[in-house]
Design a protein around this nucleic acid. Structure first.
Lengths: 229, 229
DNA sequence: CTTAATAAGTGTCAATATAACATTTATATT
DNA sequence: AATATAAATGTTATATTGACACTTATTAAG
């Protein structure tokens, strides 16, 4: 069969929805918008949009993230394709969900405002349209799995961060607490952090040393498979 | 916007492709078919088909697996949505890939024949249509990740299996070899296998005890998170 | 300048998990 | 009775994990 033969098959609208994670120092956050059109106008929703024939689905996801946040070259990963029949009452729509990790203060405030976007703590999420709650739950699980073996937590932190910020992030992701000494030992033993001579002085009198993630060192060790927990 | 508003957006053909894994005692295998229609007719391909508006994508995947193998209630998991623009020269088609684990001898031989289906060792795969090679590669990676923490390897073995069969399976999945004593100790320590009084006698004079996977025991321990490696 | 307050930084020990390694056992065949 | 075959099993050294508390650097207050 050629192009002609495919004509007989059904065609779907393909939406892309983005679970955008951020970290504010205390809790893991997701960026939600107030849905601006029917159905379910006015309810909280993930940022999404429809894919276009002339772009790949990955490109659609990037476009949608850019539209909301003004950000490009962001860590983003496909999560899952949601394809229940009546998941969107507005039409026969399948949705490919992506999750992104951004630094919360780097997004474009005006763009966020124009979409009535707001950060919500994952533990205090409002009710969401359609199956977006399932998407967020799955994204959180995937994030937990991924963070355990890949150095993506750093995407949520400033380039320079203290050991306590890093620990707070991991504690937020796993909703648990770690022993400070064991955590520091474990993370430093991986050999992918570089300690800066500089200190963060606002949160204590003594000051805490900054660290940066060293991508080159990581690339060398990556094949051996590091465990970040 | 209501149903009318969605009209303005592009619609896609949605294919579903299945990476069907099997294990024959030595190597990890994938089930391929000879593609029976254009484009790329006559080339090796994953089993696939187009999703229909009246079914979910998961249901489409099950339907396609059933069509080829005659099997239902099979372990199957969504892998990834492949959405490059020109991935299928026959039309604008996105594909949602699934991977399934089946017992190689339980599939319907006639159905397999009617699709000119054949099992290929993952290490000796022929060239495949479109992006199916990427799909297989990703499926293999996902299988490796998944098998490490979930008891899905048993889906590829007979209900009763010997410790050596199980070890051979893990060795095939990870393309490595394990020490027999350490492997046995590790697996048994999980406490999810039940040893039968019965022995498999064809491959040795002494005979090897059969084991079965005990789903009930696993369910009790699942929340603690078992490591199968 | 001394003291107090605050968060940062650090080490040990016990328990557990892993990795490396060879011999004995059960059975069928000759 | 001897032999051949694959199955079954245990020990030790090393590495990793988890539990646990005191010292240090600095600023602010008196």
């Amino acid at each position: 069969m050629g192009r002609a033969e495919y004509k007989q098959y059904d065609r779907f609208l393909v939406a892309v929805d983005c679970i955008i994670f951020g970290f504010d120092g205390t809790g893991l956050k997701a960026l939600l918008i107030k849905r601006g059109f029917e159905p379910e106008i006015g309810k909280w929703s993930l940022m999404g949009g429809f894919a276009r024939l002339e772009e790949s689905i990955d490109e659609a996801a990037q476009r949608i993230l850019l539209t909301l946040t003004g950000l490009e070259e962001i860590y983003m990963e496909q999560l899952h394709c949601f394809g229940e029949v009546a998941r969107d009452p507005g039409g026969q729509v399948i949705s490919v969900a992506y999750f992104a990790l951004i630094k919360i203060d780097e997004s474009d405030k005006e763009k966020l405002d124009s979409h009535q976007a707001k950060w919500f703590d994952l533990k205090k999420m409002p009710s969401l349209v359609f199956d977006h709650k399932d998407m967020v739950r799955l994204a959180k699980e995937r994030l937990q799995q991924k963070v355990a073996n890949h150095p993506i937590g750093f995407e949520l932190l400033p380039n320079k961060f203290t050991m306590q910020q890093l620990q707070a992030l991991y504690e937020a992701v796993y909703e648990t607490s770690f022993d400070k000494r064991n955590f520091t030992r474990k993370i430093l033993s991986l050999g992918v952090l570089q300690k800066l001579p500089e200190k963060e002085k606002t949160s204590s009198k003594k000051g805490a040393f900054y660290y940066v993630f060293d991508k080159k060192k990581y690339k060398k060790l990556e094949s051996r498979g590091l465990s970040f927990l």
